[in-house]
Measured scan of single mutants.
Amino acid sequence: EPLWIRPDAPSRCTWQLGRPASESPHHHTAPAKSPKILPDILKKIGDTPMVRINKIGKKFGLKCELLAKCEFFNAGGSVKDRISLRMIEDAERDGTLKPGDTIIEPTSGNTGIGLALAAAVRGYRCIIVMPEKMSSEKVDVLRALGAEIVRTPTNARFDSPESHVGVAWRLKNEIPNSHILDQYRNASNPLAHYDTTADEILQQCDGKLDMLVASVGTGGTITGIARKLKEKCPGCRIIGVDPEGSILAEPEELNQTEQTTYEVEGIGYDFIPTVLDRTVVDKWFKSNDEEAFTFARMLIAQEGLLCGGSAGSTVAVAVKAAQELQEGQRCVVILPDSVRNYMTKFLSDRWMLQKGFLKEEDLTEKKPWWWHLRVQELGLSAPLTVLPTITCGHTIEILREKGFDQAPVVDEAGVILGMVTLGNMLSSLLAGKVQPSDQVGKVIYKQFKQIRLTDTLGRLSHILEMDHFALVVHEQIQYHSTGKSSQRQMVFGVVTAIDLLNFVAAQERDQK
C-alpha cells in the first residue's frame, strides 16, 4: 500500500453525458421521505430548503428570480454533511469501515464536522487534520463531537509532509485500522450531490432553472449537481466560483495573481482535486475576500440567511453572472454553511477592521482624538531585521541585547519573508524542534498583521487588541530589464502597544 495517494490523481470516472444510468458502476440512493420521529440526527441530513432572495437581486438590477439552496440546514450545519454520511455509508457497505475503526480526514473543517457527527452516532474514533487558518468555532464544535484535532501550517503546499493532507496520511500509516475516506478522491463525494442535492433542486424548481452558481473546494458539490442538471435540464448554465489565490478556475489566465492566501474558508485549493470535473462548468468567476464577507453580511442583514463567507462569494458572483438572465428565468445559488463557524471572524466588526474589510468610518461609535491620525505620526525608528541564514542562537542574543521581542526576517534585497519572535524561538528550542545552530528560517511564521503608514491609529489599535505587534510595510514598484514591473513589500518598522501608548501619553502631556 502506498504511503500516500495524491489528492489530485487523474480521475478514473467514466461518467458521460447521455450515458444510461443503468451502466453506472456505483451504488445510487434515492431521496427517502422522513418519518415524523427521526431514529437519529443523521436522518436530518439532506432535504434542505430552497429560499427566495428578495432584496439583493433587485438591489443589483437582476431581472431573474434568485433562489438560495440553504445547505446550513443540514444536521452539522453545512453541505459537507451529505458527503460525510455518504462516504461512511459506502465504506461500511463495501466492508472497508468496521466497528471500532478510526476515521482520519484532512479538511478545512466542515467535512470534519460532518464526519465527527456521523462518527459520534456510529461509534468510530475520528481524527481531523486541518490548517491553522480555520476558525476556532470549527475546532470547538469538533472537540465537542469527540474528534481529535491536529493543526497544520496554512501556507504548507498540499504535497508537503507538513500539509493537512501529508499529516493525515502519516497518521494513517501509524494508526492500525485507520482510514482516510479522502473527500478529494472519493466518488461518494460527487455521488452524494448527484443522487440527492441535484434531485432536490430539480424537484423544488419543478425542473425549471436557467443558471446554477456554486463555490468550489473539493469540487464534489458542483460536479455532482452539474452532471445531473446537464442530464435533466441541459439549458442550465453552470457557474463556478473560485477565490483569488486558488488555481481551480479555467482558463488558467484567471488564476494569475501574486496573491497566495485568502481568508474565506472551505473553497479554493492549490491543486485540482480528483473529484472535480471542470468540463461540466460553463464559466468560472474569481471572487475576493472583501466581496465575500460584504455579501455574507448582506445576506444575514437583508435576507435573514445566517450563512458563512463562501455563501457571500457565491452570491457576489451570482449578481454578476445572472445579469444575462431575463424576467421569468431563474438562478439558484448554493449557500454551503452557517455563520456559526465564523462568529469571531467576519461577523465581528473588530475582525473586519483588522483585516481591512471594514473602515473605521463605517462604525458610528465615538472615537478618541488620536483615532484618525496616521501611523506615520508615530515617528517610528528604523527596524531591526535579520536574514533567514542567521542562526536561532545568534538571533536570540541580538533580540535580548537590543531589547526586542520580535524581528522581521528579510532577504538580501529587503523583501519581507516573515517574522521571528523570542517566545516562538525559545519554545521551539525547548520542544526540540530546532537547535541553536539551525537557521532562523526554520522558525519563520507568517501569521502576523501588516499595516501601512497611511493607515489610521484606530486601525492599529484594533490590531493591537488581539496581537502583540504589527509590521509596518510599504510597497515598492521595481522595474526589470524586460520592461515588466513587480510590486514588493518592504519593512518600514515594527509597532507595539507600548509605542502607541507612549505616543498618546506624550501628545497629551505636551497639550497640557
Rank of each mutant, 00 (worst) to 15 (best):
I477F: 14
E324A: 10
F295M: 14
H462G: 15
A407P: 10
V410D: 08
E252Q: 15
M490I: 13
Q478N: 15
Y269P: 03
T314P: 11
T389Q: 13
K402H: 13
S427E: 01
E465L: 15
L373M: 07
T496N: 13
C392M: 10
N255C: 07
M352C: 09
I451F: 15
F404N: 01
W369E: 06
F346L: 14
I238H: 00
T496V: 08
D411S: 12
G483N: 02
Q487D: 14
Q259I: 13
E465P: 07
M490W: 11
E265I: 00
S287D: 01
V315T: 11
Y269H: 08
P388N: 09
L500D: 00
L422P: 04
Q487A: 13
Y342K: 01
L306H: 04
T274A: 02
G493M: 03
R340I: 05
K283V: 12
A249H: 04
I444Y: 13
Q487M: 15
I238C: 07
Q302I: 03
R459L: 10
L460T: 08
A470R: 08
S481P: 04
K402E: 12
D282S: 15
A505N: 08
I267M: 05
A316W: 11
R400C: 15
H474K: 05
L464G: 06
R459T: 11
T364C: 09
S348M: 14
F293W: 03
V504F: 15
E327A: 11
D242K: 02
H372S: 10
F271C: 00
D277R: 03
D499Y: 03
T261P: 12
G328L: 08
Q329G: 14
Q256M: 12
H468E: 06
S427A: 10
L500P: 15
K433P: 06
L426I: 08
D362C: 01
P368M: 06
A431Y: 08
L299G: 04
E327D: 13
E291L: 12
G493Q: 08
Q447M: 12
M419R: 08
L384M: 13
T482V: 11
A497N: 09
M352F: 04
K402M: 14
E263M: 09
T421H: 12
V504T: 15
D455H: 14
H474M: 08
W371G: 11
E258M: 10
S313I: 07
W371Y: 11
G312T: 05
K512Y: 02
P273I: 06
T421D: 06
E412L: 14
G309K: 03
L399S: 01
R509D: 11
G245D: 05
G414S: 15
E253F: 08
S348C: 03
D467R: 08
A301Y: 15
R374C: 13
V504C: 09
R452E: 10
V473A: 12
D467N: 14
L464C: 08
T261L: 07
L325C: 04
K367H: 02
V473C: 08
D337V: 01
K449M: 09
L417N: 10
Q487Y: 11
W369H: 05
L325A: 04
L453H: 01
Y262D: 00
V386F: 12
K442S: 07
A296D: 04
T456W: 13
T391A: 08
L358W: 05
G423L: 09
L464E: 07
V241L: 03
E265S: 05
D467M: 08
T279N: 15
L500Q: 08
A407K: 03
S348Q: 07
G441K: 12
E377D: 10
H394D: 10
A321G: 15
W351I: 00
D467H: 09
D467C: 07
G393W: 11
Q329N: 08
M419P: 14
A292C: 09
M352I: 11
E250I: 10
A321Q: 12
L276H: 01
F469C: 15
A301R: 10
M298S: 01
G483V: 15
R330I: 08
E265Y: 01
K402I: 08
K286L: 00
S287L: 15
F503T: 14
I451L: 13
T274K: 06
L460N: 05
L460H: 05
D405I: 08
V332K: 00
Q489M: 09
V339E: 06
E290G: 14
V495K: 04
L353G: 09
L335Q: 01
K283C: 14
N288M: 06
R350Y: 11
L384F: 12
R452W: 12
V443S: 13
F271V: 03
D405L: 02
V281K: 01
K442R: 15
E377C: 07
K286I: 01
S428R: 04
S381V: 13
N255T: 02
L384R: 07
I272R: 09
A322P: 01
V473E: 14
I334Y: 00
F469A: 15
V494S: 06
K320N: 14
Q439C: 12
F357L: 12
Y269S: 01
R459P: 11
I444A: 13
N288C: 15
I238Y: 02
E327F: 08
N255M: 04
L335N: 01
G493K: 11
V440M: 14
R509G: 12
Y342W: 01
Q256H: 13
R459E: 02
T261Q: 11
L305N: 01
V440D: 06
F503I: 02
A505G: 15
L299V: 12
V491F: 14
T421V: 12
L335W: 00
G309Q: 02
V472W: 10
L399K: 03
W369N: 06
L457A: 04
L378W: 03
P251T: 08
A311K: 06
L347C: 03
V332W: 00
E365P: 11
D510Q: 03
P408S: 06
E303P: 03
G379I: 11
E397D: 13
G245E: 05
R297T: 01
P436I: 15
I238L: 04
V472A: 12
V494T: 06
E377K: 13
F404L: 15
V333R: 04
K283R: 04
L353W: 06
R459S: 06
L254M: 11
E361H: 03
I300A: 01
G312I: 02
K367T: 10
Q447Y: 09
I398R: 07
T260V: 12
W284A: 00
A301V: 14
A321C: 14
T279Q: 14
S481G: 12
M466W: 13
I416N: 09
G441H: 08
L358H: 09
T389F: 11
H394N: 14
F404C: 06
K512V: 14
K359D: 03
T456A: 15
M298D: 10
V280T: 15
H394A: 01
M466C: 13
M352Y: 04
G304I: 02
I498R: 02
Q323I: 05
A316I: 11
Q511C: 11
Q476M: 09
D242V: 00
K355L: 15
V440K: 03
L358D: 10
Q323N: 08
V494E: 05
Q478H: 15
E253Q: 15
T496R: 07
E377R: 04
L378K: 03
Q439W: 13
L254T: 09
S348G: 02
T257Y: 12
L417G: 15
L457W: 00
R340T: 02
K402R: 15
A382D: 03
L457H: 00
Q476I: 15
V332A: 14
V375A: 13
G403F: 08
F448W: 13
S461I: 02
V375G: 06
V494R: 03
Y445K: 08
I398F: 15
D270K: 05
L299H: 04
T496A: 15
V315H: 06
M352G: 00
A497M: 11
E361Q: 13
L417I: 12
V339Y: 08
M298V: 12
Q507H: 15
T496G: 07
Q478D: 11
I498S: 10
E252H: 02
L430I: 15
T454A: 02
F293P: 00
Q259P: 12
G414V: 12
E244K: 11
L299I: 08
A505M: 08
L399D: 02
G309E: 05
W284V: 00
K433Q: 14
Q511L: 11
G240P: 00
G403I: 07
M343T: 06
Q259A: 01
T294H: 11
Y479P: 06
P336A: 06
L464F: 08
T364P: 10
S246M: 01
E290H: 11
A382L: 13
L429R: 12
K402F: 09
